Simulated scan of single mutants.
Amino acid sequence: MSLMRLAYASEATFEAKPVEKGVEPHVARILMTSRKNNAKDQLVGGLYYGNDRFFQYLEGEEDAVRRTYDRILKDDRHRNIVTLIEEPLKSRTFSNWSMKYVPLSRDVRAFLDDQGLESFDPAAFTSEQCEKMIELVRNSSQEQNLSTRDDPKSVGDAPQVLSSGMKTGLIVAGVVLVGALVIGGTML
């Protein structure tokens, strides 16, 4: 029973659609599938999507991490997949997240600014930048500004129209709606 961690970067092959309920629709489908599969395999980790690129971090039993990564390598929604970190792990560092999703937030913009990066391109991250991104994903709050594109206008200090409780309720309703649509679509 050996644990490992793995981080990768990839480019999306799909053309991003307008954000619905805070998440790009293709990414919402990836999240739903990942959460189901990862919970079954006892994997934990996080996902960030921005600038048509993915950064994903996984940790868990080595065999389960490798099986999951093999599926990702064959997934036609990803191209130019680059392994950033692949190494043994002494103990889990994420808890209770089969796949945490990090929406675009001030934290990500601050990370890019701090690193002198103009855009999100995780395939070019140094190992130190990978570790900082993993830490950002691990510590991010789900009640951040919801957007999935690197649009500088979406991360400014715009006045908040909805309370955090209303945002959370809308997010939950959106996830349930997308789930119902996906399940209903598979029954046709």
Rank of each mutant, 00 (worst) to 15 (best):
Asp52Thr: 13
Asp52Trp: 14
Asp52Gln: 15
Asp52Pro: 01
Phe55Pro: 08
Gln56Val: 12
Tyr57Ser: 02
Leu58Cys: 12
Glu59Ala: 07
Glu59Thr: 09
Gly60Met: 06
Gly60Gln: 06
Glu61Cys: 10
Glu61Met: 12
Glu62Pro: 10
Glu62Gln: 14
Glu62Met: 10
Asp63Ser: 15
Ala64Met: 14
Arg67Cys: 11
Thr68Lys: 04
Tyr69Pro: 07
Tyr69Gln: 01
Asp70Ala: 15
Asp70Glu: 12
Arg71Asn: 03
Leu73Asn: 05
Leu73Trp: 03
Lys74Arg: 13
Lys74Asp: 11
Asp76Pro: 13
Arg77Ile: 11
Arg77Trp: 05
Arg77Thr: 11
Arg77Ala: 12
Arg79Cys: 14
Arg79Pro: 09
Asn80Met: 11
Ile81Gln: 07
Ile81Asp: 05
Val82Arg: 13
Val82Asn: 01
Leu84Thr: 04
Glu86Ile: 00
Glu86Ser: 14
Glu86Lys: 12
Leu89Met: 14
Leu89Glu: 11
Arg92Ala: 15
Thr93Ser: 15
Thr93Ile: 15
Phe94Gln: 13
Ser95Val: 12
Asn96Trp: 11
Asn96Tyr: 13
Asn96Ile: 07
Trp97Glu: 11
Trp97Val: 12
Trp97His: 13
Ser98Pro: 14
Tyr101Pro: 00
Tyr101Leu: 12
Val102Thr: 13
Val102Ser: 12
Pro103Met: 05
Leu104Glu: 10
Ser105Ile: 00
Ser105Met: 01
Ser105Gln: 02
Ser105Asp: 09
Arg106Phe: 01
Asp107Trp: 08
Asp107Phe: 07
Asp107Ala: 10
Arg109Gly: 00
Ala110Lys: 04
Phe111Ser: 08
Leu112Asp: 00
Leu112Arg: 04
Asp113Ala: 06
Asp114Arg: 00
Gln115Arg: 09
Gly116Trp: 10
Gly116Val: 06
Glu118Ala: 12
Ser119Cys: 08
Ser119Gln: 08
Phe120Asp: 05
Asp121Met: 02
Ala123Asn: 08
Ala123Phe: 09
Phe125Trp: 01
Phe125Pro: 00
Thr126Ile: 00
Glu128Asp: 13
Gln129Ser: 01
Glu131Arg: 03
Lys132Pro: 06
Met133Arg: 06
Met133Tyr: 08
Ile134Gln: 07
Ile134Lys: 02
Ile134Gly: 08
Glu135Asp: 15
Leu136Gln: 04
Leu136Val: 04
